[in-house]
Design a protein around this nucleic acid. Sequence first.
DNA 1: TTGAAAGCGCTAACAC
DNA 2: GTGTTAGCGCTTTCAA
Lengths: 326, 326
Amino acid sequence: MATLDDIAKLAGVSATTVSRVINNYGSLSEKTKTKVFSAMQELNYQPNSLARSLKGKKTKLIGVIMPGVSNPFFGQMVQEIEDQLFKKGFKMILCNAGNDAQKEKDYLRMLMANRVDGIIAGSHNLGIEEYQKVGLPIISFDRYLSDNVPIVSSDNYQGGELAAQSLISSGSKNPQIITGSNRPNSPTNSRLTGFKDVLEKHDLSYNLIELPFSSSPNIKSLKIKELLTNKKIDGIFCTDDLTALLVKQQAQALNLQIPTDIRLVGYDGTNFIQNYHSELTTIMQPITDIVTMMIDLLLKRIDDPDCQLEKNYVLPVKLITGGTTI
Amino acid sequence: MATLDDIAKLAGVSATTVSRVINNYGSLSEKTKTKVFSAMQELNYQPNSLARSLKGKKTKLIGVIMPGVSNPFFGQMVQEIEDQLFKKGFKMILCNAGNDAQKEKDYLRMLMANRVDGIIAGSHNLGIEEYQKVGLPIISFDRYLSDNVPIVSSDNYQGGELAAQSLISSGSKNPQIITGSNRPNSPTNSRLTGFKDVLEKHDLSYNLIELPFSSSPNIKSLKIKELLTNKKIDGIFCTDDLTALLVKQQAQALNLQIPTDIRLVGYDGTNFIQNYHSELTTIMQPITDIVTMMIDLLLKRIDDPDCQLEKNYVLPVKLITGGTTI
DNA sequence: TTGAAAGCGCTAACAC
DNA sequence: GTGTTAGCGCTTTCAA
């Protein structure tokens, strides 16, 4: 692969001059510019960004740590992140942390070793103290990482409220929550609080069941079936849309009518759900806004590592009413 | 961020020695090793992989160019790629090319500039001649890029055959194909050929409609509705599962019974479809195997850039029978 | 078993 | 308007 020196030789100038041409820096005669450009063309030259970064320049690389990209929610979020980063001239190293805390730690080291300019983290693993001493700009999605890492999230409390209101106004008297793992310190817990608070105002109570994020759809379906068979539930709030899809399936299999026997509200409202399951009532997280916010903050921190940011940035959610509530 | 020299000073040895410890190279006394390790610990040191790569080492970075990751098929594929690459110590720069050829070209330059060790490309853009002169190991998924870029794909012809057989044995006499854009040189065209060949053997003909990959689900739905309303179709083969989902929706809205009035076969068979739409009969592409193959070939090429590889690697597909055929 | 020195490809003073 | 030089953080001969 051609180097700057090769170009310099071919164009008959010094390396410095070539560097100036590339970076459009200082004063240059048209003649040399042309010579250099054509030499670059001829050798299909690409400046080595490794060398450039070694000299203290930014790498223009952002590490993105997410649970995984096969889930439509995170798929859409990662795609949005990529899109916006690209427009600002950044590339992204994608790190799927799954539920593997060790992998997440390993990735953290790798990202440091690769001198990324910053990190966006939205995985679900707990207790990764390494975040405390990364010494790199980090922004988190919907999870507490460390005192100086700002959290961007949508309004989980409001989401819970909306879900409850939707179930209640559809006539549910015995609502049920199905949630992923309920972790300490997780902002998503507010979904439950919001839900509960509205119910209490209406003198209603609710049941709660936890189906871990990571357990297989088959197992979830089984538990859901059990739930639908044994209990006198007339409304369900799932804290993610995919689980809501399973509920819908199981209800149909059991000949329970939605929304007359059972009202159903999901959570996330991805494009995928809106396009392919518009029947589902759900709470839409504003993914684009969340990403815009995260990138905005991250770039601020990259520009000025000492800039003060809030601890929390909360964006409003929206109820999307489909046919699974009235 | 701490450098190798910092460690050297703190440990009271030379930089060379530290380098040796890090790379576990040459002979070292236990005492120095311990000293160096504890110095590294103390300063939370991460070797700068930029500097390392500048010295001719591999970057351990792979560029992955895909249409986008919000589509469950590519989401799953990218997740699988990431997973397998991680296990082999590689990181991935994710490039969503969408349907934007210019973006794909820009990414190609970026990847070269970042000295990635290799590229996996599976996007849909056409006529990107830049692939000819990247001068980097490349493996392609399901698309022709250049004479020396091996193509890994699943057996599209066989997939078409299976789809046709499934429709026919379910009793379809007037089958319809709904396909994404039909491009020259695309291996996916074989799906149509395989389908057609089987039909001809049974003295049946078929209709074909193109719904571009990139058009919105709403527009697709509209066209599908038109199709279902006007024509005497009794079986549909969609060359992707999401479109099949739309067909199912529209058929239900029109009160057409599946599979009695209309038989339906999709394509791809992602985990998502298997988990959340197991009712759909579909052709499953072996994503894991495809990825394993691609990475295997890519690493071979990285190890030995001159190694000879086949032009095509074709992996078998599988019919998954759900309730949309009999 | 360890160190000194050169150099990877680039940028940025500092000269001229 | 252009070139010389030093150096980013690391690896790797070559010596000791």
